[in-house]
């Protein structure tokens, strides 16, 4: 029960409550000699009641004016959800279609498909905490882990602007993991990587990333939007000379993720439908209990105050009508 008022100085009006102490608000009738009236407990009680009613009415009005309310509260609930950082690829190629062409009226670009499906995903998971990081040549911090779905949607919508430069995935991953730093979070921690290509991870960052993935207990999902005729995650080199991270970055990134020994799932999506399936999968799998605080918005009590004031005034009026007039 946390009560608060909007404009505290109005509470000074509570001093008006003193007025009924000096005056009971009853019309005075002339009487020859007051001393001959016998003491009457009922009358005394009635006078006290009248004064109390008057004070209460004034108090109710002033509290209503001051804007009495119950402050925002939150109660802890346990729901099914997760802490998800969306790590979005903003490299130039995301603006092409799955067939590797410039998007036209029939085919949407990979970025547009990702945007549409992520919108559905976000809307379908009310109890998640979501954060967004993006990367091209360098990582971009977009929004911290939050329950504000409108903000997340605004960030997803903003990916409509042309994509940036190249693909530097290791910095992107590091940025995504930094979202979980110094945060007490219950429920699973997920990094959902949406990209259409990979890049070699340099040995320095590799070590660092390995360590962070372990420490943060991250579950990794990789939705790989594969462009037609480009090497896939599971593709084996035809020539052993090509079996290196620079020639086949997708295969090697997948190998790296698998070697992390963390819960990891890769989806190779060659069309918007395949991507839809991947997202549905995550939606189904990630329903571990998560403690979250449900916010109870502040409750305005001024309406209640005014109702009480009006009710008390009615009582006062009724009593006024009972007054004896000689």
């Amino acid at each position: 029960m946390n009560f608060a008022v909007e404009t505290p100085w109005v509470l000074a009006g509570l001093l008006f409550m003193l007025w009924p102490l000096f005056d009971d608000g009853v019309r005075h009738s002339p009487y020859p000699w007051l001393d001959i009236l016998p003491p009457d407990a009922f009358s005394t009680g009635l006078t006290v009641l009248l004064r109390i009613l008057g004070m209460a009415t004034i108090a109710a009005l002033v509290l209503g004016l001051a804007g009495l309310h119950r402050t925002e509260q939150s109660i802890e609930r346990i729901g099914h959800g997760a802490n998800i950082v969306l790590l979005l690829d903003r490299s130039n190629s995301m603006d092409n279609t799955f067939a590797g062409r410039t998007p036209d009226s029939e085919e949407e670009s990979k970025a547009a498909a990702a945007r549409r499906l992520l919108t559905e995903f976000v809307a379908g998971r009310p109890h998640d905490m979501l954060g967004i990081a993006e990367y091209s040549t360098s990582p971009l911090f977009v929004l911290p882990l939050t329950e504000n779905k409108e903000a997340i949607q605004a960030a997803i919508n903003a990916t409509v602007v042309p994509a940036l430069a190249y693909t530097n995935i290791s910095k992107g991953l590091a940025m995504a993991m930094s979202f979980f730093n110094n945060r007490e979070l219950t429920g699973s921690r997920i990094v959902l990587l949406v990209s259409d290509g990979a890049a070699a991870i340099d040995p320095d960052s590799e070590l660092q990333l390995r360590q962070w993935f372990k420490q943060q207990q991250i579950r990794l999902y990789w939705i790989f939007l594969r462009t037609a005729n480009s090497p896939g995650i599971y593709e084996l080199p035809t020539d052993s000379r090509n079996d290196n991270a620079d020639a086949m970055p997708e295969r090697y990134l997948h190998k790296f993720f698998t070697s992390l020994n963390i819960p990891y799932q890769a989806y190779e999506a060659e069309s918007p439908d395949a991507m839809h399936k991947a997202i549905a999968d995550i939606d189904r799998l990630e329903h571990l209990p998560r403690h979250y605080r449900e916010r109870i918005p502040r409750q305005d009590l001024s309406a209640l105050c005014y109702q009480w004031a009006a009710g008390l005034m009615l009582v006062l009026l009724a009593l006024k009508l009972c007054e004896v007039r000689r």
């Binding site: 993006e134 929004l143 504000n148 605004a154 960030a155 903003a158």
Partner: peptide
């Protein structure tokens, strides 16, 4: 130039805007 996010309401999204 690139846009990180489209405009967000300032009162409900204060914490997010501030962090970003």
């Amino acid at each position: 130039s690139t846009l990180l996010f489209e405009p967000i309401e300032v009162c409900s999204g204060f914490a997010e805007l501030d962090a970003a």
